[in-house]
Amino acid sequence: MAAFKFELVSPEKLILSEEVDQVVVPGTDGDFTVLAGHSPVMTTIRPGFIDIVRAGGKPSKIFIRGGFADVAPNGLTILAEKAMPAEELKADVIAAQIKNAEEDLADAKTEAAKTAAAEILGQLKDIQAALGK
């Protein structure tokens, strides 16, 4: 299979930049698979997992949230606000963290702390929903 260039970028850093064979992207209007020579598409993404298949390497899953995917003739670029490898996400860990976050939200006194806690909670719920599928 022909390889193409794939880059995963978060605001903090460039997470991945390598040659891959296939990537499944969770687009807002539905998941789609990108192979080499895909026609140029620009789409926003919904929270979910990207599936990366490399030649000879083992496939990997990364959770992404908020951002967009840009398929250009020279490769695929995903700009994501948050990105986490799937191995770090276990259902029971997430459930415990959600419980924690809910307590934080209940305890939050200032407006800023409340927004921060709500943000974290929303993120965790997104992950849980994506894992549930």
């Binding site: 209007d29 026609s39 140029p40 926003t44 250009a72 003739p73």
Partner: peptide, 14 residues
Amino acid sequence: TGGIYEYEPDEATI
């Protein structure tokens, strides 16, 4: 970009 870009959803939404 050379080719015609496809936008999903449409450009304004993105």
